[in-house]
Design a protein around this nucleic acid. Sequence first.
DNA 1: TAGATTGTTAATCGATTAACAATC
DNA 2: TAGATTGTTAATCGATTAACAATC
Lengths: 213, 213
Amino acid sequence: MRKSEISSLVIHRMPRYYRCLERLRNKGIDRISSRGLGIQSGLTPSVIRQDLSSFGEFGQQGIGYCVEDLLREIVEILGMNNGYTAVIVGAGKLGNGLMSSFPFETYGINVISFYDTDPEIVGTTVFGAPVHHISELAAHLTEHPVDIGILTEDLGSVDDLTKMFSEGGVKGIWNFTNTELKIKGEEPVVENVHLFDSFFSLCCSINGYGRRC
Amino acid sequence: MRKSEISSLVIHRMPRYYRCLERLRNKGIDRISSRGLGIQSGLTPSVIRQDLSSFGEFGQQGIGYCVEDLLREIVEILGMNNGYTAVIVGAGKLGNGLMSSFPFETYGINVISFYDTDPEIVGTTVFGAPVHHISELAAHLTEHPVDIGILTEDLGSVDDLTKMFSEGGVKGIWNFTNTELKIKGEEPVVENVHLFDSFFSLCCSINGYGRRC
DNA sequence: TAGATTGTTAATCGATTAACAATC
DNA sequence: TAGATTGTTAATCGATTAACAATC
């Protein structure tokens, strides 16, 4: 299967396989079947075999998958060792929380700097990363290319920020704002978190809608 | 369509309609067609009409939808005025960030308290909500029923926390930990955020996998 | 009346599940 | 050899899109 033909659903399950395999490795388990990985991950053996086979042939018939090998393959697929660089827009509570609780460092993601508008925090550092004024973002992006732009706050206009990232050569945007970003063309790729939608769909379920089990 | 037959995909789009309609109302627009809402939301008119019609008949043929009325219906569907109560496990950076940046108050969600293990923060308050020791959670849940449990940290065992919420009558769990929760039976409902999967699927896309446009 | 737009049915598309030959 | 398990093909299921009668 060509790289470009893999569906978004498959791609979103890959980090989940990584998490399960990492746990298995930490337990000292070195082989796992699609059935076993299904129990770990809460997915069916069928979907797991289909997903993995779209990237290559990683298993052995009659045996299963070697945990270490499969882990290495998935690290490669996810680009975990690519040493991506990132900047975070918004040095408020959410930006801070993300910086301190998300394992950027563990996975070699270099968070270069923050951008904000608040004169009280511009000039300070957040866990070692300097906070610049948002007006410097465009210039910085041309000086030092950045792979990932993280939007934690609606500072000014989200459309302007998107445009800056796009024109500054950013490859992907991790979007925490409650707005759909307008992208012209193929890049950057956008991954939305949309906490608002997540929380209120939970409320909707509590309110009695949707299938259970 | 029966309440219980509505798919998870539909439910997850409802808050998005809410956001778009709220913006339209703030602009003073009082009527919108499925086509117009499609442009706003980035969804197709077809999917919008299908989604809305599974909850009722909210539009007028030849005219479209009344923004105010539809907004009121969606507020009802999402249970936004139900005055849900919530507790947050983990008073660290992420819990703090959530409390300060998520509009709980605006939507009448009462965050009663935090739970943590760190002796330095147990006993303090976070934006007015007291931080209790995690060992008090089970007792508190039986004293004062809570609708929503928010897991921001892997304090001790996630399985134990899930069990406590489940036995304490919590109706929904908003899960920010990188673990699939094991639920026996129909309740509580779980809504996963899985920031790890979200971030690394973005990396995977940057790495060249997946469809564009 | 003519144009617009809904709610719904039918057609298409894509994802998941089941089945099985290949083979360790 | 017999049992296990992959990768892949075919069957099923569900979601999206297209079409259209009803009607404002």
